[in-house]
Design a protein around this nucleic acid. Structure first.
Lengths: 204, 204
DNA sequence: ACATTATTTGAACATCGTTCAATAACCATG
DNA sequence: CATGGTTATTGAACGATGTTCAAATAATGT
């Protein structure tokens, strides 16, 4: 075969990531293979390797898109909220919803790691901290007198905690029954951290 | 070859799990393969498959041992502590230490999942809740008047949160620098949840 | 001594990520 | 219009993966 040029490099990239997302959603992230992606977009593996450096590269781009998608969703919902606290609670709610609706794509973001030794690609580093910073922003508004470092610290602790509940629930490692639910657990965590945050402010 | 009978079934199982642990620790959990395990114990793949149902079965047994090992370590350290709060803080500290010292084995516990559709083996279910229950026990002691369900709820939220900090830090998805550290983040979370717990008790 | 049983092997299979020479389609030039 | 150069695309090949199983061998029973 030779050049068909039906699609540009970037188009193929986009098609491949689309296809990957679909495969992960329908068959789970363990079923994502290069050949499956290639077949789904009407090309062969070879072409894929001309457009991506390797298989991890595909996963990394898929994950970047997943994070972006989630960030947009969170932004959109947060805008409607007036108070800083409501915004933080909304962030968590959307986060949980997204993780629940796209469990495999969401897990892939957190369970994938580039081959041992290689550094985290800049692509990911940039996205990594976006949500933490959004939480920090709202904490700052909630209590403007805290020193910046303390705000960041609290934001990290809170958001990591929410993430922990999310991932354990999603991977079936939490007992959820009766009055238990992800949402309630997260409410408890938010209540606790926000109250403590306000209290330490008083002793400032 | 025929029966050598140098080792019993159970001995081979133990040897295989030992070898797996070593491989995971030294080469990372992505490098764990059946052939590598077999070679390390002086057998071939075939033998492994007579003793384990499949590769996941090996991982599950390795994970069970990892959890047991960690649980023993926690128990031992918790015994020395007098107050319920000190015991909870110690639990978290030992958890973090273990995860930090054995990152790959620890991650394997939480990132492995049996093939799609298959239920979590009983082996895991039993171990899954041990640590949560330990936290709940101490919470109960901390404030005996709470209703049992609320205690379990708080224990789950707190322990999941600690886990979240742990896993994000370990997978390099947390900004940790300056005054930031896993220990400090976890302290913040524990402070918040315990204080809130005591406070809601007052309004009981 | 021989037959039976249990244990261990290693070749075979499909599939994986990855590479790369060969190929076929396009473009430009004569 | 043909011809040659360029380039996108292929598909076979490689080593390694999990998994299976007939064959081979060692221990045991008679």
């Amino acid at each position: 075969m030779g050049r068909r040029s039906e699609h540009s490099r970037d188009e193929i990239r986009k098609m491949a990531i689309d296809a990957s997302a679909k495969i992960v959603e329908t068959e789970g992230f363990k079923s994502l293979t290069a050949r499956k992606v290639a077949a789904k977009i009407g090309y062969t593996v070879g072409t894929l390797y001309h457009v991506f450096r390797n298989f991890d590269d595909i996963v990394i781009h898929l994950n970047a898109r997943t994070i972006d998608e989630m960030a947009v969703l969170i932004q959109k919902n947060v805008k409607k909220k007036r108070s800083a606290e409501a915004r933080i609670r909304t962030m968590a709610a959307v986060y949980v919803d997204f993780a629940t609706e796209h469990p495999d794509r969401w897990r892939l973001v957190f369970e994938h790691q580039a081959p041992r030794g290689l550094p985290t690609p800049e692509l990911m580093k940039v996205r990594r901290d976006v949500l933490f910073e959004m939480v920090a922003e709202n904490l700052r508004e909630l209590s403007p007198n805290h020193i910046s470092q303390e705000v960041d610290h609290t934001a990290t602790a809170l958001w990591s905690g929410i993430h922990g509940i999310c991932i354990l629930a999603l991977t079936g490692k939490l007992y959820l029954g009766g009055a238990f639910s992800m949402v309630k657990l997260i409410d408890t965590l938010i209540d606790s951290v926000l109250n403590e945050f306000r209290r330490t402010h008083a002793a400032d």
